[in-house]
């Protein structure tokens, strides 16, 4: 949203005086909801039609609960759920931590399922590092996440040979 606004400002040279009815002067809040609806979570077709997409990427967001399911499973999202914001932020943190710790190895979305105080983190990981390293990373991420989130965390990983295995289609 902010980037779109900044670009709009940049494109207008400073010498040109803004008209009083210009959208920049008249409305302070730039809402780009329709744009987001059309663009967000969707992938453009490449020229050579060789962009690999996973199943998750191949189905745009409006197919959630129809063709694909949520990546976060918890009771905060249901009506009257507790700790909505905390859960959302923690999930985002776990996702970033996972993609950083398992750098370049995570081939799918990080799936976070919460049961009682137990957090299960599932992902599909490439077998690009040695099993020893993988075991270390497993224990390392579990231990650190458990310490930060004050919950038992379990990593339930599935390994694949390469990213090719999770590719659903090419566009």
């Amino acid at each position: 949203m902010n980037i779109a606004l900044a670009k709009l400002v940049q494109s207008i040279s400073p010498k040109v005086q803004l008209l009083p009815w210009s959208p920049i002067t008249s409305s302070q809040i730039h809402t780009s909801l329709p744009l987001c609806r059309i663009v967000s979570g969707k992938y453009r077709i490449s020229k050579k039609r060789d962009k690999p997409l996973t199943y998750e990427m191949a189905n745009p967001p409006h197919y959630i609960a129809h063709r694909k399911t949520w990546n976060s499973w918890n009771t905060s999202n249901i009506k009257g759920g507790l700790r909505r914001s905390e859960t959302a932020i923690e999930d985002e943190f776990i996702r970033r931590f996972m993609s950083g710790t398992w750098h370049g190895l995570v081939c799918s979305e990080v799936i976070i399922k919460r049961q009682f105080n137990h957090i299960r983190v599932a992902a599909i990981v490439r077998r690009a590092v040695s099993p020893t390293k993988m075991y270390f990373l497993l224990g390392y991420s579990e231990e650190l996440l458990a310490n930060w989130l004050q919950c038992p965390v379990t990593l339930e990983l599935q390994t694949v040979d390469s990213f090719q295995d999770v590719v659903f289609k090419y566009i």
Binding site: S108, E156, D165
Partner: peptide
């Protein structure tokens, strides 16, 4: 439909 291997959808559903 995609098989059971490397299928994130199967991992998501309880």
């Amino acid at each position: 439909p995609p098989g059971k291997k490397a299928n994130a959808e199967l991992m998501k559903i309880p």
